[in-house]
Design a protein around this nucleic acid. Structure first.
Length: 670
DNA sequence: GTCTGCGCTTTTTTT
DNA sequence: AAGCGCAGAC
């Protein structure tokens, strides 16, 4: 639906934000207070008053939000070209664009972005090189090392201190870890490879340069930042370098919705901005246009934070109170959710108006099974996308070495897919390829059993690199990779379609480089292109982590696993900050709902979160469901709880089950 | 050096 | 339940 008259729909506070002139503008916007509408209207107002769209930079948290905002802004100012001309995207996406423009200033041949998987691969490689891979040293996983590194970089805190505060079990190995991370940075730099953090670091470096920085600053007169409570120190530096005195800067945020502390973000940055920029103006948005007052009554009890926004519903009338559903176990919880979703659907609520939210990806396992059994279509956000699956990354590795022969980690990946090439050969051979060694020489250095296949691969990669036509390049890479994967993966038939789909999407691109970069930086932004995601006209239920649900809303919301250990996650309980962040997550989850909110607490859960085994342990309802919170809710017991008030279901059914003699088939093998 | 099968540890959230 | 390292066979 298109807003034809935006100004008429704005309330006083929103209008003040839209029309603001002069110094920095800080908008403290509670959940559902029309933050998107306000930002959009402000952009439209700027354009209508004569600002060129390319002078506006809109930084949002996900590309989904960026796209929604630009198109809404375009609709508001009757100028569809705004969509193309305005700068908008995530910090990382914009950084990539800027860095790619300035490769020569940065001494880079090309911009190759390492995805998180590449980072751990590279760390594994270095660990191997330095003989630190055995269990003798028992270093933490490369994943953990990457987290330590990223956190240090993003907060400007030394790794040793990061370990002491966040990863105490790593302190024993602090020296070796630091050596490894130093080697990691050196190797990255030597090969011209950038990880996600580097994109921001390089952008900041460009802005800090006297000449390039001035040119970049001159590019945007207006900088708008969404979800400012989720920025980290590097991002703050970038914003401050873009608008040093705050002139032309608009920042929107809500400290109660800060949920990216694990990435080095602090809502302190939002709160401190007003002190750093004394001329700034604060506008508070507290009128909620989303939820019923009944839902807000709970949200206001749950809401933490220093901004003390108290939300009041703009909507008239009243809706049902939030419901607390006590379930017997996670299967019971899954059934209960499916029942409620279907019931609402039968009353006319589309599946797309309902969502199921949870703390971690695995919490929806049982539900996914239940939904499949019942034939309820759904789409899960926030899990591992298939762009991150091994076979798709193999194909992308072929693209990458074709574009950049210095991409050591992609060579390594590609080589290990060959039969008879293991870690050791792959390591030496990929180093040779990076040096630019002749392909024939490299083949002759490979183990005899691998030579034929390797010669073929290198020939096809050479073909790929020699063309600039994406379709031809993709075809050569696909030919190179397919036979390798066919013999490498036992379940190739299951994976083939993905590789085919990615290849097709890639061959349609005008610029393969930017396609790869986009797929790396934000897989979800391109995932829709090749049909894994349901079409928009289909009706499907959304399953999402709370993190991925940020900024979105649904008529009906189901919140899974509101138990201690899951929500708050017991991983977060080691620190006060961790627990506070969990509470903000809980707040974010409750405020996604417009009309109905159901919160589920299973009383028994599997011992290990990822296992479906029958071993269960008792779980307590979430500590966030305090007495005042529960007073705003209705309590309900699930069918499963009512059906078996006393006996343990598993034990009872085991006893009741008849023993069936299993025939031994020995006579078949005599 | 590589491959296969077995026993061992997993800690969550995302650009 | 799955992914990783290890031991042993080739």
């Amino acid at each position: 639906m298109i807003d034809t008259d935006a100004a008429a729909d704005l309330d006083d506070a929103q209008r003040e934000a839209v029309e603001h002139h002069g110094g920095a503008l800080v908008v403290a916007a509670g959940a559902g207070t029309g933050k998107t509408r306000t930002l959009t209207a402000r952009v439209a107002r700027l354009v209508d008053s004569g600002v060129a769209p390319e002078q506006i930079l809109l930084l949002t948290f996900t590309r989904r939000v960026a796209a929604a905002m630009t198109s809404r802004a375009a609709a508001l100012c009757e100028n569809p070209s705004v969509t193309q001309r305005m700068w908008s995207g995530t910090f990382h996406a914009v950084a990539h664009r800027i860095v790619a423009e300035h490769t020569q200033h940065l001494g880079l041949e090309d911009v190759t972005v390492l995805d998180p998987g590449d980072v751990t691969d590279l760390l594994d490689l270095l660990r191997e090189e330095r003989g630190l891979s055995g269990t003798e040293h028992r270093l933490p996983t490369s994943q953990t090392l990457a987290d330590i590194c990223s956190r240090a970089v993003n907060t400007g805190v030394p790794t040793r201190q990061v370990m002491a505060e966040q990863f105490p079990w790593c302190l024993d190995h602090a020296d070796r870890i630091n050596d490894l991370l130093k080697a990691y940075v050196a190797r990255k730099r030597a090969r011209g490879l950038l990880d996600f953090d580097d994109l921001l670091i390089y952008w900041r470096a460009l802005l800090a340069d006297p000449i390039v920085g001035d040119r970049l600053r001159a590019r945007w007169d207006w900088v708008l930042v969404d979800e400012y409570q989720d920025v980290n120190q590097i991002q703050v530096d970038i914003v401050r370098l873009l608008r040093p005195d705050g002139e032309g800067l608009t920042v929107v945020g809500d400290d109660a919705q800060a949920v990216y502390g694990f990435r080095g973000a602090t809502s302190e940055h939002l709160l401190r901005l007003r002190e750093d920029l004394p001329g700034s103006t604060l506008v508070r948005l507290e009128r909620n246009f989303r939820s019923s007052q009944q839902i807000l009554d709970l949200a206001n009890v749950v809401r933490p934070g220093a901004l003390r926004l108290d939300l009041s519903a703009d909507r008239g009338g009243c809706g049902p109170r939030p419901v607390h559903v006590q379930c017997a176990n996670s299967d019971d919880e899954a059934r209960e959710v499916a029942d409620a979703v279907l019931a609402a659907h039968q009353e006319g609520l589309d599946l797309r108006d309902q969502a199921v939210l949870f703390r971690t990806g695995t919490h929806s396992n049982q539900l996914e099974i239940e939904l499949r059994v019942r034939g309820i279509p759904f789409h899960k956000y926030g899990g591992i996308g298939y762009l991150e699956t091994a076979h798709v990354r193999d194909l992308i590795a072929a693209f990458r070495v074709s574009l950049n022969p210095g991409d050591e980690i992609s060579w390594y990946r590609l080589l290990t897919r060959h039969r008879a090439l293991g870690k050791v050969s792959a390591r030496t051979l990929s180093a040779r390829l990076v040096e630019g060694a002749d392909h024939h020489d490299v083949v002759s250095e490979a183990p005899a059993k691998a030579r034929t296949a390797l010669a073929r691969t290198l020939e096809l990669i050479r073909t790929a690199s020699s063309t600039r036509v994406p379709a031809l390049m993709v075809e050569a890479c696909q030919q190179a990779v397919e036979p390798l994967l066919r013999q490498h993966y036992v379940d190739w038939s299951r994976r083939a379609a993905d590789v085919e789909g990615v290849a097709q999407a890639a061959s349609r691109q005008r610029d393969l480089r930017s396609f790869i970069a986009e797929a790396t930086i934000d897989p979800t932004s391109v995932a829709g292109d090749w049909g894994k995601k349901p079409h928009l006209d289909e009706d499907y239920l959304v399953l999402s982590t709370i993190h991925s649900a940020k900024g979105l809303e649904w008529s009906a919301v189901h919140l899974l696993r509101a138990t201690d250990g899951a929500m708050p996650s017991d991983m977060a309980l080691t620190s006060k900050e961790g627990l506070e962040e969990e509470q903000r997550l809980f707040y974010v989850a409750t405020t996604r709902a417009r009309d109905t909110l159901r919160i589920y607490s299973p009383m028994r859960l599997p011992v290990h979160p990822t296992s479906m085994s029958s071993r269960h342990v008792l779980a307590k309802p979430s500590r966030f469901l305090t007495a005042p919170a529960l007073r705003t809710m209705d309590a309900v017991a699930s069918a499963g709880v009512l059906a078996q008030p006393v006996a343990s279901g598993a034990a009872a059914s085991k006893q009741a089950a008849p023993m069936i003699a299993v025939p031994d088939l020995g006579d078949l093998f005599g």
